[in-house]
């Protein structure tokens, strides 16, 4: 990079890059807000379902298969990653945590949500099932689909417990991957039973509610992971923008120095020439 032309070209390229990273940051911020809105709406709904479950807790047999502690000899690990990259260490952390879990236990079956997790894990472990490209248009039917998969394998004995690895979201700067025991579920708090007519019947309502409870938990986890993903991308893009801005500054400085040098040299030439002319006139 000896000449000014080259400097100008590079500065322009980096400035274009800033446009891109800035736009991506804005998009991530908007998506983050949208996902957080969904969390806000999810909470009162889940609260109502939990109230109904506690009102009916008296009717749920303690021997229900979803409550029964098992030996956890055939666990299923469900890993939640993201479909897209450029979100800092988000997926790296998830994959690393998954590998820790897979190393610490034997006979684990693996299911993965998100393309990045599948790419990161498929070379080192057999993936039973992967679900990808759901985060772009995340809706509740995805939670239903995943729950159906988890429960059908649980009831048919393919696995005797389900663990979920996802990124827990605390704030925009704080999110950590974590593993939760998902099935069997802890028993529900028993609330005051009230008199109700059940439509079609008590047993059906209880069964439906319990299945729905799991769907809601999956939904919560998908939302939380997606929130953390957008936050991670926002921060990564912010960092990238700042790095690029630093680069523009340092390139501009170098370019100005070079230009200054050139000007000085030219001035020097002119002054020398004038001096020479003066001397010749005398």
């Amino acid at each position: 990079m000896r000449n000014l032309q080259e400097f100008r070209r590079r500065i322009r390229a980096v400035k274009d890059l800033i446009q891109v990273t800035k736009a991506m940051k804005t998009v991530s911020a908007a998506r983050l807000r949208r996902t957080q809105n969904k969390v806000v709406n999810y909470k009162p709904y889940a609260e109502r379902i939990k109230i109904m479950l506690s009102e009916l807790a008296y009717a749920i047999p303690h021997a229900h298969r979803l409550f029964q502690p098992t030996e956890e000899k055939k666990p299923l690990l469900l890993v939640i990653s993201s479909d897209k990259g450029l979100c800092g260490p988000f997926n790296y952390n998830v994959v690393r945590k998954a590998l820790d879990f897979l190393r610490s236990r034997e006979g684990v079956r693996l299911a993965v949500i998100g393309r990045k997790g599948r790419e990161g894990l498929k070379r080192v472990y057999k993936i039973e099932k992967s679900i990808t490209n759901i985060f772009q248009k995340l809706n509740f039917s995805h939670a239903k689909e995943i729950t159906d998969y988890l429960l059908s394998g649980y009831y048919s004995g393919d696995w005797d417990s389900v663990f979920v690895l996802y990124t827990q979201f605390f704030s925009v700067g704080r999110y950590y991957p974590t593993v939760e025991r998902f099935i069997p579920i802890p028993p529900f708090k028993e609330g005051a039973p009230q008199e109700f007519i059940f439509e079609p019947g008590l047993e059906e309502v209880v069964d439906g509610l319990m299945q729905h409870y799991i769907e809601l938990e999956i939904w919560r986890i998908l939302l939380e992971s997606s929130t953390a993903e957008h936050a991670a991308r926002m921060i990564a893009m912010d960092q990238a923008t700042r790095n690029a801005q630093d680069m523009v500054r340092s390139l501009t400085l170098q370019m100005n120095k070079l230009r200054q040098e050139k000007i000085t040299k030219e001035l020097l030439d002119i002054v020398t020439a004038i001096e020479a002319m003066k001397k010749s006139q005398i």
Partner: peptide, 8 residues
């Protein structure tokens, strides 16, 4: 004034 009811 319906009797309390819970259903699917």
């Amino acid at each position: 004034h319906h009797f309390p009811v819970m259903g699917i």
